[in-house]
Amino acid sequence: MKTEQVGDATFETWTPEEVFDACRKGEIVVIDVRTPQEYMFEHVEGALLMPMPFFKPEMLPGQTEKRIVLHCGSGVRSEKMARLAMERGLNRIAHMEGGFGAWKEKKLPYIGTDMASGAPKRVEP
């Protein structure tokens, strides 16, 4: 994990593997900032959705028990929203480097769509 101090805030960049491990241990809340369509097609299992156009840092859950890690398709939108959250007063926020594209590159499991039925299905590459 890379850490950057921005004023009084800590900005973290996590790898997909770090996010996966922390998810399995129940240590983080993953928030997807992609569009609802992107999320419905495929997403990190257990990730919550807060699309970028509707992103409100003040609506994020507290981080007393679990840390927040944002993600998007490539890491660009999640970094932008994480920096916005810091501007709005969050003193610690993280995003996933490379986004969902990097997650899939690392062959980590996710929820996809069964093209025959349109139903969600777990994908284990």
Rank of each mutant, 00 (worst) to 15 (best):
M115I: 10
R67K: 13
P125G: 02
M50K: 02
G89H: 07
S117T: 15
S74F: 08
L90D: 02
D21H: 12
I68Q: 01
M81I: 09
E124W: 05
C23F: 02
I28Q: 03
H95N: 09
S74D: 00
D21L: 15
I111L: 11
M86N: 00
R77K: 13
V33C: 01
I68Y: 03
K104G: 07
I28V: 15
E45F: 07
M52V: 04
L90P: 05
P57Q: 13
P125M: 01
P53R: 08
E27R: 11
P61E: 07
Y39W: 12
M1H: 08
D114L: 10
A119R: 15
Q37V: 14
K104N: 10
E105K: 14
E58F: 02
M115K: 13
D32P: 03
K106G: 01
P51Y: 14
Y110Q: 04
T3Q: 11
E12G: 00
D21N: 11
K2T: 13
L49A: 02
E38N: 11
W14F: 14
P61A: 04
M50F: 12
Q5W: 01
T64M: 06
T64E: 12
R34V: 05
P61D: 07
G62W: 05
F11P: 00
F100P: 12
L90Y: 06
V44R: 05
K66V: 11
E58M: 04
H43T: 06
E45D: 15
T3M: 09
A82Y: 01
T10E: 14
T10H: 01
E58I: 04
V33G: 03
E65G: 09
I111Y: 07
S74C: 03
Y110H: 15
I68E: 02
M52H: 11
